[in-house]
Design a protein around this nucleic acid. Structure first.
Lengths: 211, 211
DNA sequence: TCTATATTTGACTAATCAGTCAAATATAGA
DNA sequence: TCTATATTTGACTGATTAGTCAAATATAGA
């Protein structure tokens, strides 16, 4: 009944996500998003009550898009060490793609917007915190499997270690964005992370595992 | 000769630093800075050619303020492990002070503004990268002393380890800001950092060292 | 073909934005 | 007291901002 739905809302979500990720929330205007998405301003406010609402929705949309990849990477059928090495590969490849396309290492979209807005808008702070927790749950799962397989110290505090891992990866992505440089992420992040986790396999063993 | 200098410029630097740190560059206006600093807009543009220039100058000003503290904390006269534990104490206390005063964990001012603006303004990206490098030099120094004292593996790659440390601390500060929560920083950051560095002292030994 | 409904449009507002400028003011040193 | 110089002021501009709204349009189903 009535006029059929279009992809306008989706175009706004995608465009907002890309522009905010590449630049910042504060530097992107509703007009700018509309122009790039080829949407008139009236349509924008037909779909979203405010710029902040769009940003929020675009975060949800991106996280929803990301979950299947995380489910795959952290599939219980994988060797738990492999889950982490695949995660780093996944992150690096996306960052490298964006660097090539936009000339800019963009870092983590959640953390970037979270850092910018958390102090002004506690709703967004809560949302990004929830995403953080969600990601750490994947890590905790892998860590428990690693303990069960005798790969790491059985006394490892899983919740704590997951938070360390998340902070470490996050810090690296942030620095990569600021420096606009993926060197560390490309060559060192994986072994450094393994060391942080406490895995005692040799580099050769790790290579065999990933292939 | 002529009218004597005032503290107007300093007031602008301080106010800009505080407002941008607590909120974000994009959400703070020149008018807002002027009002809080009790400076008329004409005076603002007498001292700074643009809002971006003020932000840049406030970063320099804050780093200049910070260096004496870092020189003290990383004094070669201190035990190198103590340098890192003091660093964490220093960071935590500042964050806790701000949380109490403003109701908000503010994280690292350099990283916050760097993350927001690096993609739009490569000059600021370069400046924050330089500050990053400067801080890592303190870490490298301490790590070399630790190797000399037999506290960590002599094969430790000092440049790499310093980058790991910086990313780890940075990531933690960022997450503390987003979550508006200092729990991890208060109770876990120090031992986690020691583990990352590869120090093999017991918790008891560490306690003795810090007191 | 008609109608209910969803979508799109473009002109609009009022506030805020960064930045300008000429004039006023204060004061140290001559 | 005079003068050179630095500082301060307040009114100003033009652009951009987020957000509004009534009217126009498109189409699926009756």
């Amino acid at each position: 009944m009535g006029r059929p739905p279009t992809n306008t809302k989706l175009r706004l979500l995608e465009t907002a996500h890309e522009l905010i990720w590449r630049n910042s929330y504060g530097s992107v205007s509703v007009d700018g998003i509309c122009e790039k998405a080829n949407v008139k301003k009236g349509s924008f406010y037909h779909y979203f009550p405010s710029k902040a609402d769009l940003a929020m929705a675009s975060i949800d949309w991106w996280m929803t898009n990301t979950i299947p990849f995380l489910d795959d990477i952290f599939s219980p059928s994988r060797h738990p060490i492999n889950r982490f090495t695949l995660l780093i590969d996944f992150i690096y490849e996306k960052q490298e793609d964006m660097r090539i396309e936009f000339g800019q290492v963009c870092g983590c979209p959640f953390i970037t917007i979270g850092s910018e807005l958390a102090a002004q808008d506690e709703i967004i702070g809560a949302k990004i915190s929830a995403i953080t927790q969600q990601k750490m749950t994947y890590y905790q799962n892998a860590l428990r499997d690693m303990i069960a397989m005798g790969l790491i110290d059985e006394k490892t505090n899983v919740e704590l270690k997951a938070e360390e891992i998340y902070a470490f990866i996050t810090g690296n992505m942030m620095l990569a964005r600021i420096k606009n440089d993926l060197k560390f992420m490309k060559t060192s992040l994986k072994p450094s992370l393994m060391n942080l986790i406490g895995v005692e396999l040799s580099v050769e063993d790790l290579k065999k595992l990933t292939i």
